[in-house]
């Protein structure tokens, strides 16, 4: 039993518990894909058996970052691009927490790209949801790292000359142990994938396609979509890196040709999480570090352990 009584609490959980009484109604634009993420996440939580008090949701800045306002749990609405480093430290400090990070495509693949690569590499045991609307929503429609080549916006008046980021390929190459893509228009699949991602013991990355009807009018609504697990065209072994890489590449390319391929792309259940690696080599104590501060016990002193070597 944890010193934090919410952690590991075994009880019936109602998904309505995740609706904050303070702001029960999200204020995203009508038709915004972000509603789909919120709904899928609320649906997933009772399934994975975690309560609001033992969950920490860390978000970045963007329309997507508001998720922490509309989802009831411990929340940390951080700064643009920095959700991952805040989240992964909280997990190291208290591994008992269910840690979820979320943000936009600009937030995660642009300004926070370095953290994305390294958090995936380290395989922290957490879930990372990227609201991929192929646009900077909050700042009113500028070209984002996932906007298609040629995308015109006020800041790219002649169209972007850049090839978009390949989020899943990047994630796989960096070291994520669970990689999936889902879409707001596909709530059932989204919730299933979220459940798997949260249950996965490692870095689970979900590229969540979220249409932005306000600023990305010409972007597809992500329908129709194909679930690669149900498709005859693909016979993907999600445990095989090479196959996964090829399939991701296909999916990323075809998105810009109007074909929406979703589903699970990679899953390595055996790779130990960063916390496990660190604990195994004695770098992190077995007991959550945060608990010590709330328990009685002796604290180490430099006077006893370190001063001798200086005399």
């Amino acid at each position: 039993m944890s010193t934090f009584t919410a952690i590991g609490e075994d009880r019936e959980i109602d998904q309505e518990e995740f609706t904050p009484g303070v702001e029960p109604q999200a204020t995203w634009c009508p038709g915004c894909g972000d509603f789909g993420v919120l709904k899928a996440l609320k649906g997933a939580m009772p399934e994975v058996g975690r309560t609001p008090d033992e969950t920490l949701l860390v978000t970045g800045i963007g329309c997507s970052g508001k998720l922490s306002s509309y989802f009831e749990s411990y929340g940390f609405h951080s700064i643009h691009g920095r959700a991952l480093p805040v989240a992964r430290a909280a997990k190291l400090a208290n591994p008992g927490l269910e840690v979820i990070a979320a943000g936009g495509d600009g937030d995660g693949y642009g300004i926070g790209g370095n953290h994305f690569m390294h958090t995936a590499r380290e395989n922290h045991d957490m879930t990372y949801i990227v609201f991929n609307n192929e646009i900077f929503g909050l700042t009113k429609g500028q070209t984002s790292p996932t906007s298609p080549k040629g995308h015109e916006s006020k800041t790219q008046p002649h169209g972007s000359a850049k090839d978009p980021v390949r989020p899943m390929s990047l994630s796989l190459a960096s070291g994520a142990s669970y990689v999936a893509r889902t879409a707001a228009v596909n709530p059932r699949q989204a919730q299933e994938i979220l459940v798997e991602a949260i249950q996965h013991d490692g870095f689970a990355h979900i590229d969540f396609l979220t249409q932005c009807p306000t600023w990305n009018k010409d972007a597809k609504e992500y329908v129709p979509y194909t679930d690669i697990q149900d498709s005859d065209e693909f016979d993907l072994d999600t445990g095989d890196r090479r196959e996964a890489a090829e399939t991701m590449y296909e999916a990323e390319s075809r998105l810009y040709e109007g074909e929406v391929l979703t589903g699970r792309f990679y899953h390595d259940p055996d790779r130990p999480s960063y916390g496990e690696e660190k604990r195994a080599q004695g770098d992190v104590p077995e007991e959550p570090v945060a608990e010590r501060y709330f328990e009685d016990g002796e604290w180490e002193r430099t006077a006893d352990r370190l001063i001798d070597r200086h005399t």
Binding site: L56, V58, F76, S78, G81, R82, P85, V86, A87, R88, A89, A90, L92, A93, N94, L97, N114, H115, M117, H118, V289, A290, Y293, F294
Partner: peptide, 21 residues
């Protein structure tokens, strides 16, 4: 960690979770 933005952000995350950082 990967850079100093991350370093300070991690210290914030750990402190938020109840560890002196």
């Amino acid at each position: 960690v990967e850079d100093e933005i991350a370093a300070a952000s991690l210290a914030i995350g750990a402190s938020h979770a109840g560890v002196k950082s």
